[in-house]
Design a protein around this nucleic acid. Structure first.
Lengths: 239, 239
DNA sequence: TCGAACCCTGCCCTTGGGGCAAGGTCAACC
DNA sequence: GGTTGACCTTGCCCCAAGGGCAGGGTTCGA
């Protein structure tokens, strides 16, 4: 005859857990001795180990209760089910490990692989980290607002990046961020940009990616996304 | 600017969870628009994905809060720690799968491997399932009452099982369960048993495994552990 | 202008126990 | 025959990490 403490040690469970199983009706309340102590039998030990095994597998106590007095066939198929569940969870934990490893570096957790590749291209081109960060945040906003559009846009943009003149403009824009608004290079850059747009629209069917609504959206959600020189540049382009 | 619903979709999280993170101080409360709706930025999205990644790895929210504003070195080592944790949990789930597979058959979940082997020996010998079940339950009681003693006893018993006469006695005892208490074979069996005990104690140093305290214990905890014939046999042995 | 789809706060509910209080019991040792 | 420490009893409230729902306001598209 076992006391609750011995039974708990045997099954690798706390006393509190056993009492909890009694309350939930999972484990039958055993007989009491003269002083009111619970006295368990070998059957209780077997039942408790079954309960523990299922609970360790993540089965909710309510379902364990059902399984304990199910017929063998039902039990077998339920166990197969639970096992699949375990396999899934193992696979999921492996995926979480991969994600965890990316937490410390890179942006692949936050943007689609295509955008991440694009950001790497920018980095390789020599664009500043500030600009890349800004660009990443812009893509995050776009992806949340409309994942399908973002997917089309990034494909388009990556296509543009194969054009040497476009890449040069990107770098120039990046550098212009810190210029004075009176810098004589600004009107030159504005002209060059207008030229490229004209050429490019002539050659391709794509409309410019710059959509005013999105631009406003991005502006509002990207604090510090502008500078005196960039504001001046925007004026020059409109005028 | 993102609404809470879009942000939730982006991060694969419920709206309720995001609000929960605000309450816990994990994610900064964002600015509100004119109607009181929360308006999120790309930074919030990044923070939320970090939170989600850590939470998926099983890190408690309180610890995530600390990690989010820890210096990079601390973070790196914390992540290594969390990753070890994940590996452990994966290994543990694999063990649970093995245990689950044993839930449907066999006694290895309930007794030590030695006892399980011993039970298999009995089965091979041709002992009835009723007796094996009784024996198993007895060993469960012994293991819970005193695992060290049970370990010694099972070693002793397995040693005895190499003796052909002992094995024969085991089978005979099993068969005797159903005999009438007047069966003439009972006194013969009692004699044979006494003989064996005498011989065996002469040859070996071991004291008989049958300890009265343990016997009483087992009797009380094993309902149906006796029969008229067995009771008579006990009488004959004592007399 | 209406309905559907969002958003807000506040409140209680869940799972699987943990912790602690306040008290009874048991066994061993002195 | 005490006392001490380990064990058992019930009862109560507490935790994480949200879920569900009530009761109400907002926005958008047809």
């Amino acid at each position: 005859m076992l006391t609750i403490g011995r039974l708990a040690d045997y099954a690798g469970v706390t006393i509190k857990a056993i009492r909890h199983y009694h309350e939930r009706g999972l484990l039958a309340e055993p007989a009491r001795d003269s002083s009111g102590y619970r006295r368990y039998t070998a059957k209780d030990a077997v039942d408790l180990v079954k309960i523990r095994t299922l609970a360790n597998a993540g089965v909710p106590l309510a379902r364990i209760k059902d399984l304990l007095d199910a017929d063998p066939d039902t039990l077998t198929s339920a166990i197969a089910d639970i096992d699949h569940n375990l396999q899934d969870r193992i696979a999921q934990l492996r995926r979480v490990r991969d994600q965890l490893a990316q937490l410390c570096g890179g942006d692949r957790l936050f943007v689609s692989p295509e955008v991440a590749d694009y950001l790497d291209d920018l980095r390789e081109l020599g664009v500043s980290e500030r600009a890349i960060h800004l660009e990443r945040d812009g893509w995050i906003i776009m992806q949340t607002a409309s994942p399908e559009d973002a997917c089309l846009w990034i494909a388009e943009k990556r296509e543009l990046m194969t054009d040497p003149e476009f890449r040069a403009l990107c770098l120039e824009y990046d550098a212009a961020y810190d210029w004075s608004p009176d810098d004589p290079r600004l009107p030159v850059l504005a002209d060059r940009t207008r030229n490229w747009f004209a050429n490019h629209q002539g050659r391709s069917e794509t409309r410019p990616v710059h959509n005013p609504a999105i631009a406003r959206l991005a502006e509002q959600s990207l604090p510090g996304a502008s500078s005196p020189a960039w504001d001046r540049l925007a004026q020059l382009m409109e005028g």
